[in-house]
Design a protein around this nucleic acid. Structure first.
Length: 374
RNA sequence: GUCGGCGUAGCUCAGUUGGUUAGAGCACCAGAUUGUGGUUCUGGGGGUCGGGGGUUCAAGUCCCCUCGCCGACC
């Protein structure tokens, strides 16, 4: 049985030397070239950026969050506003996360087979999320891609607990499929299994059997580090269907992303470019720089000379240093523009390299250059 | 001129009846941040305790002189 999906994924190229792939992902809101990085706009906004500025970075898909939007402003209002696309005025593709990660990231949650109770809320009412409720919210929000409600365990996690969470995730994904009845949204399944090869493979098999238009690898970016991340991806990605997009959730740093592309991942999201931007940490081909450092006080060069973003075209490091020292909002804006643009540039280059069959060379050169900055 | 109050980190201040190596907040410097609460966390550099003298085993603390600022009164 094949689920009909509003998503079309076309594989364009496989790198001859590794599992890296280039493809095209079409949603009702346009085309996205893969591998792709999706900037995160949890509350229906990429912090510090207008949708126009986000588009100018080259991003064609962004992420928002079920849990946060259900609490405020409530999915009903969003639905009345024309869904997330109308509410936040982002015309391109949107993916919503299910709220599953908040089980891991928010303190004071109570979880059982039925669902999760969040007791942490400081403002707004305490919330309960179940697979059904998560689907209900995500259908109202109206994103093009929505995620199954899963249980994400912390790291480290012993195998029995990881296994219980994995089977609960499988049970919940069945309930998500039953509850999801909108044909203009694609529901992705999420592979869990912590850092255990046996569980990852089992979970991948079970997800594939349920036939989704795309598959995510979840339960990473919880503090496991690059070595384990590579292993987990290596145990999972090769078993996922070739003709469906593969999404590594919550990752990550440039090196995390490049290593995972090599292992066959197509989609990424992470708060790092935007969060780091707000604390003055900017990405360059020579590694990260921290603009608040005194050494940039009189630095009249752009953040990254080879970057064509608005920030790098127009402003010096010294000016950005000054903006951060003065707590000017513009510092956050310009830094966010650059970091998001930098990630998009990195993904374009990776894609080009795959299409030309030289991905490994590209990755090695990129990482070598990054190391020079240290 | 007289009387009173105050001088401790860049800033605002705490410092017990005299008792180890004088503290805090902010600022500054440097790290951390992975399906986001613009946060938060973790380190670090900084002091002739206005200056000088005295009492004492021991003084930021008590005494004397002196300098500066503030207030009140002549």
């Amino acid at each position: 049985m094949t689920t009909e999906s509003p998503l079309r994924f076309e594989l364009q190229a496989n790198d001859p030397a590794c599992a890296a792939r280039a493809g095209r992902l079409n949603s009702p809101h346009g085309e996205t070239l893969t591998p792709v990085f999706m900037p995160v706009g949890t509350h229906g906004a990429l912090k510090a950026l207008t949708p126009r500025q986000v588009e100018e970075t080259g991003a064609t898909i962004v992420l928002a969050n079920t849990y946060h939007l259900a609490i405020r402003p409530g999915e009903g209002l969003v639905e009345k506003s024309g869904g997330l696309h109308g509410f936040m005025r982002w015309p391109k593709t949107i993916l919503t996360d299910s709220g599953g990660f908040q089980v891991f990231s928010l303190p004071g949650t109570k979880i059982d087979d039925h669902g999760v109770q969040f007791r942490y809320e400081k403002d707004g009412e305490p919330v309960e999320l179940t697979p059904e409720r998560s689907m209900q919210i995500q259908m109202a929000l109206g994103a093009d891609i929505i995620m199954a409600f899963d249980e994400c365990v912390p790291f480290p996690c012993d195998e029995p607990r990881a296994e219980r969470a994995m089977y609960r995730t499988l049970d919940w994904v069945d309930r998500c499929q039953v509850a999801h009845d909108r044909k203009d949204q694609a529901l992705f399944g999420i592979v869990q299994g912590s850092t255990y090869e046996r569980l990852r493979k089992k979970c991948a098999q079970e997800m594939i059997r349920r036939d989704f238009p795309g598959y995510a690898v979840g339960g990473v970016s919880v503090g496991e580090g690059l070595d384990l991340l590579k292993k987990v991806v290596g145990w999972t990605a090769p078993f996922l269907p070739e003709d469906k997009p593969r999404y590594l959730m919550g990752v990550g740093l440039p090196e995390d992303i490049l290593e995972s592309i090599e292992r066959g991942i197509d989609m990424f999201d992470c708060v790092i470019p935007t969060r780091y931007a707000r604390s003055a940490t900017l990405f360059t081909f020579r590694g990260r720089i921290r603009l608040t450092n005194r050494r940039y006080r009189r630095d009249l060069f752009p953040v990254e000379p080879n970057c064509e973003c608005y920030t790098c075209r127009e402003f010096t490091r010294a000016y950005l240093h000054h903006l951060f020292q003065s707590d000017e909002i513009l510092g956050h804006i310009l830094a966010s523009i650059h970091n998001v643009a930098f990630y998009q540039m990195m993904m374009r280059q990776a894609r080009e390299a795959i299409l030309e069959g030289r991905y490994m060379e590209y990755k090695e050169a990129f990482l070598k250059e990054q190391a020079k900055g240290r």
